[in-house]
């Protein structure tokens, strides 16, 4: 009896280990997120922005996991934990909210084929449970931020970054760049420039005129 319990326990441990840690491609050097989190993000990005759609890049091609990795790195510790908890929850919630197929649908989300992942996420999006919709909205928000950071996507959506000249005002003589010492302020009174003249940007920005 005891032996049987040990065997069952060991099998369960092996299953959990494989489910949580097994079979992920290694993370790129310097990544803050671990391989399983990057794999989940790639899987979700491909499901939210799948290949073959009207936009030039899929979520994976747009480098969403790398963007989210940078975003997580730039976040405060508590927010990092919250985001990672969100990723883990979505990855393993297939145990409770499975994809198509009795057993296959319960595999972790990142291990499921694209069509199944899309179906799972659609289930979250349209759920009658507010908490499920909230989880989906949070995850999609993070992925969308990363998708929009891609230059090709920006170009297709007419959202290319545009340059604007910043006048040098009195405040620029007082404040250093964030994190730097005041001794690094490069401007003096002679560098002050006239304030913005209020020329509407939509009439003057390159590529912005209608």
């Amino acid at each position: 009896m005891r032996f049987a319990a040990l065997v069952v326990g060991a099998a369960l441990a092996a299953w959990i280990t494989r489910r949580v840690w097994g079979g992920h491609p290694p993370a790129p050097p310097g990544a803050v997120l671990c391989p399983r989190e990057l794999a989940l993000l790639a899987a979700v990005a491909e499901a939210v922005f799948p290949p073959g759609g009207p936009l030039p890049r899929s979520g994976g091609e747009a480098g969403v996991p790398a963007y989210v990795d940078r975003l997580v790195a730039a976040s405060a510790p508590r927010q990092r934990r919250l985001m990672r908890l969100l990723f883990a929850a979505v990855e393993h919630a297939t145990l409770v909210f499975p994809g198509p197929g009795l057993w296959r649908g319960r595999r972790r989300l990142s291990a499921q084929p694209l069509a199944a992942r899309i179906a799972v996420l659609e289930g979250w999006r349209t759920s009658s449970l507010f908490s499920r919709r909230l989880v989906f909205a949070s995850l999609r928000a993070i992925v969308t931020l990363g998708y929009f950071a891609d230059r090709e996507v920006q170009r297709r959506l007419a959202l290319d970054p545009f340059a604007i000249e910043s006048p040098i005002c009195e405040a620029d003589l007082l404040y250093p760049r964030v994190g730097a010492s005041r001794a690094t302020i490069a401007f003096g009174l002679g560098d002050l420039t006239p304030p913005s003249d209020g020329t509407p940007l939509h009439a003057s920005a390159p590529g912005a005129a209608r």
Binding site: V48, F49, G53, P54, R125, R140, T144, L157, A158
Partner: peptide
């Protein structure tokens, strides 16, 4: 726009089509 798009409905190809409406 990335922040506003969070409010857009849909996912997958449907979402991509809606994003094309941004202009």
């Amino acid at each position: 726009p990335a922040v506003l798009s969070v409010r857009m409905p849909g996912s997958g190809v449907e979402l991509e089509r809606r994003l094309l409406d941004l202009p």
